[in-house]
């Protein structure tokens, strides 16, 4: 309850600061916000656009959240998402019956995401390498690897700016407008992780490790196993974000500058913070982020400069994410000071 109130206050603050920015730019802020809301929610088609934009963000946000619950700062969703996308698409090189093809693509993508997360876990648990460092590095490896594959190996023969299209047998069936049945993956994973974290022994252990690793260890909980589980589940979730972006959303391909995969992984961090690292909060946070992003894009159509839109968008997102980010930072600081006896 307090969290909701806090978020509403943060939202109001962000909106006001954004308005001030636009006013300083000599624009009418309320007209612009009106355009934003209309662009994102003005009609059913716009709503489907907003929703379909939110769906992969749910998954990358869950990647961050489940690791944060285990006390880690996992920013590897970006790389795992890219790997998932390219593996899912590559499954289209084979011919399989409809439906099964989609299932196989998701399975392989999930596997690839978990494998991409595995070195992070091993480096942390065996060599003590901080996950921030290893995920940043693996993100770049994934970026260049994906770029290479997309441009050199998977590129379409006629339309050079993207890969071949995912075959129909591998796509999520359309629902309405830009929305496809890929929503079941995002909502399903969110519900699963909610159950996992609060109703399963392993999830309970993940949370225990995140809140107090020493006490967890003293209670016989395996800290490495909990962290490994959190990282692997996160890897799968992020990989599926990439997969549904390719298999469940127009244009059912990867553009050769990877722009349609964009910053899904990094945006997921903001979404996780907005959603308080809670799977159900993340569903709301992703929708909120989707509204902002879709609405902002439509503001551009009204001749509002792109840079200004991005500033306003950034201000609101930062305001919404700040409470949880501060909480995480405080916890980290408490832990580090606790280790230095006075």
């Amino acid at each position: 309850m307090r969290a909701i109130l806090e978020s509403l206050l943060a939202l109001a603050l962000g909106v006001l600061v954004g308005a001030a920015v636009m006013a300083a730019w000599g624009r009418d802020p309320w007209g612009a916000y009106g355009a934003l809301l209309q662009g994102a929610l003005g009609n059913l088609r716009a709503l489907t656009s907003t929703l379909s934009r939110s769906l992969p963000l749910v998954l990358t946000a869950l990647t961050f959240a489940v690791a944060a619950r285990a006390g880690m700062f996992n920013i590897g969703a970006q790389g795992q998402m890219l790997v998932g996308a390219v593996v899912a698409l590559s499954t289209g090189l084979f011919t399989l019956p409809a439906g099964l093809h989609l299932g196989v693509a998701l399975a392989l993508a999930g596997l690839a995401g978990a494998l991409w997360a595995l070195p992070v876990a091993l480096l942390k648990l065996v060599r003590g390498v901080n996950e921030v460092i290893s995920t940043i590095m693996l993100n770049w490896v994934a970026h260049w690897l994906t770029l290479y594959l997309v441009v050199q190996k998977l590129s379409d023969r006629v339309v050079g700016q993207r890969t071949f299209l995912a075959p129909a047998s591998m796509r999520f069936p359309p629902l309405y407008g830009e929305l496809t049945w890929s929503w079941t993956v995002s909502v399903g994973v969110a519900l699963f992780l909610f159950w996992f974290l609060w109703y399963h022994r392993q999830g309970y252990e993940v949370r225990a490790v995140g809140l107090n690793p020493k006490a967890a260890r003293a209670a016989g909980i395996s800290v490495p196993r909990a962290m490994l589980v959190a990282l692997l589940l996160g890897g799968i979730s992020a990989a599926w974000a990439g997969a549904i972006q390719v298999l469940g959303r127009f244009p059912y391909a990867i553009t050769s500058d990877l722009a349609n995969l964009g910053n899904l992984g990094f945006d997921g961090i903001a979404v996780a913070l907005i959603g308080r690292n809670h799977p159900l909060g993340i569903l709301g946070g992703a929708f909120f982020f989707g509204v902002l992003a879709t609405g902002a894009a439509r503001m551009g159509l009204r001749g509002i400069p792109l840079e200004m839109i991005q500033i306003v968008q950034g201000v609101i997102v930062v305001a919404m994410a700040a409470p949880e980010a501060l909480r995480l930072l405080r916890r980290v600081r408490r832990r580090t000071t606790a280790e230095v006896p006075v």
């Binding site: 022994r201 309970y204 949370r207 225990a208 809140l211 107090n212 020493k214 006490a215 967890a216 003293a218 209670a219 016989g220 909980i221 606790a338």
Partner: peptide
């Protein structure tokens, strides 16, 4: 344990969650 905050309990957990810590 000598320091119940560091080793014995997880303060953010509720009473039930602490009651089953290590004996779930």
């Amino acid at each position: 344990p000598e320091d119940r905050h560091a080793l014995g309990l997880i303060l953010e957990f509720n009473v039930v969650e602490n009651a089953v810590l290590g004996r779930i």
